[in-house]
Design a binder for these strands. Structure first.
Lengths: 83, 83
DNA sequence: TCGTTTTATGTTGTTTAGAGCATAAATAGC
DNA sequence: GCTATTTATGCTCTAAACAACATAAAACGA
């Protein structure tokens, strides 16, 4: 199921949730993505300055995909990722 | 219609296309997003090092939304954003 | 074609990401 | 509770983002 990431904070939450679903620690994920554990920690807590390359590295490691859409009026269902 | 951005390059293409649909120049968009025209140029051509904050600023200005999904087997239809 | 607008490129200075390492804080298991 | 694991914080250093300004290159319109 797709998740809307309206902020780095929400993006971090989604990454964290996915990582845990995969049974990975921050260190595991860091190794998979070629990053460091400290950076995963920052990203998961909503770091604004993260680079695109880091995000894509994480997505590849977690098998996630980035989709862009028009911020239209969506079904109320999507009020799920608020925090 | 949603677009998959599998790389900064594709993300840049989507941003550029949306900007033109809105009838904006790079300078217009830069002003809207609080960035500089040179940066829009780099982002649209696929700059890997762009910061999340810049991407979100652009998305807000263009009324775009970021969605995360599992990179599952999608309908072949989505072979549209390849370049 | 010429002149204008738009986009790409280049430079310098400042800020910050991220590596690498240490360690503190928090969490989980017993 | 205690211990081990995991996550968060703090440090220095190097590389790179971004602002700001200039200007070249490209695209557009009469």
């Amino acid at each position: 199921m797709p998740h809307i990431a309206r902020s780095p904070r929400q993006l971090g939450n989604i990454i964290q949730r996915t990582r845990k679903q995969r049974g990975l620690t921050q260190t595991d994920l860091a190794n998979l993505a070629g990053l460091r554990q400290e950076m995963i920690s920052k990203i998961e807590t909503g770091h604004e300055g993260t680079k695109l390359s880091s995000i894509y590295a994480l997505f590849a490691a977690l098998d996630l995909e980035l989709i862009i859409d028009i911020r239209s009026q969506r079904p109320a269902k999507d009020i799920e990722d608020i925090f």
